[in-house]
């Protein structure tokens, strides 16, 4: 009897976690790839609007006179990113600094959604579903776009294409493709060059392929793990009754754990946004510099 109850609770717990990690998806084609994660897209639009709204609003109102408090904050971030880009990137492109700022700002805003209590929006969404007469068990909602692999990967691929574009623009077609075969191993004789070119090409291809993967997986992994830990903390009092004394003890434990992890997570979301931006700047700088 007791074992059956325990296993039921375990199933419940697994179901809860799986439900939380399920995207609200719409299929737009035949293959598995032709699927859109609607929740990710909605919250991406929301984050883009918030970021653009804040930034463009202050840009439009930016005065050379005495700045207000929020304008000072925006300017401090802009100057910080601008300084970082100027220090590292020596190419001609004017898009790198705005792109870096967008990376940092957008990823920060997206990561920030992770700090909203993990059950809050899914619970509201489930409530809306049952009000509309649907089964709340099918109301899936994951609100953190960066905890969906698609977002970090999409951004990392955007950075990848930008790196190739900057490389082509700064070096020209001949030099850009020439470097595929002549760097990083340099040879002096013609024979040496020919012998080394396959190794150079291989290394270059691996390097280019690994960058978007490492860039996206780093961010995705951190955010996914963060979200999972919030879910696990929430599981502490899952389906518990207030009649039991242990529920109260677990509730206190849950509060402390949630508070601690949220506080720590503020650091992580900022750091991950920053790392994504800095690595992108580094990749773009390397593309602009001759080997």
């Amino acid at each position: 009897m007791a074992t059956a109850e325990e296993s039921a609770a375990a199933v419940d717990m697994t179901g809860y976690i799986q439900h939380h990690l399920h995207h609200w998806q719409v299929s737009v084609g035949d293959s598995a790839f032709m699927t859109l994660n609607i929740d990710t897209l909605i919250f991406t639009v929301f984050c883009c609007a918030a970021f653009l709204g804040l930034f463009v609003f202050f840009a439009r109102r930016a005065t050379a006179g005495v700045p207000g408090k929020l304008q000072s904050v925006v300017e401090a971030v802009v100057l910080f990113v601008d300084g970082l880009v100027k220090e590292t990137f020596h190419g001609k492109s004017k898009a790198i600094a705005p792109m870096s700022l967008t990376l940092f700002g957008l990823i920060f805003f997206m990561n920030f959604l992770d700090l909203i209590p993990v059950d809050f929006l899914p619970w509201a969404w489930g409530g809306a579903h049952s009000l509309a007469g649907h089964d709340p068990a099918h109301a899936y909602l994951r609100i953190v776009p960066t905890a969906d692999l698609n977002t970090p990967l999409g951004m990392a691929l955007a950075v990848f294409f930008m790196v190739q574009y900057v490389g082509l623009r700064e070096k020209g077609v001949g030099k850009f493709f020439g470097e595929f075969f002549t760097a990083p191993f340099h040879a002096h004789g013609a024979l040496g060059k020919v012998l080394l070119s396959p190794a150079n090409l291989l290394l270059r291809l691996i390097e280019e392929a690994v960058r978007p993967v490492s860039l996206s997986l780093r961010l995705f992994g951190n955010m996914y793990a963060g979200e999972l830990i919030f879910i696990l903390i929430a599981v502490m009092t899952l389906g518990a009754s207030l009649a039991h004394g242990s529920t109260w003890a677990l509730g206190v434990g849950q509060f402390i754990a949630d508070f601690g992890w949220t506080a720590f997570h503020i650091l992580i979301i900022t750091l991950q946004a920053f790392i994504f931006m800095v690595l992108s700047i580094v990749y773009l700088s390397m593309a602009a510099e001759s080997h």
Binding site: M34, L36, N37, L41, L106, L153, G154
Partner: peptide, 18 residues
């Protein structure tokens, strides 16, 4: 968890914001 069409949309959205 598997990458799907969303990543294309996300990449394009990112470029638009940039």
């Amino acid at each position: 968890m598997n990458p799907n069409l969303t990543l294309v949309v996300q990449g394009l959205a990112f470029f638009a914001v940039v």
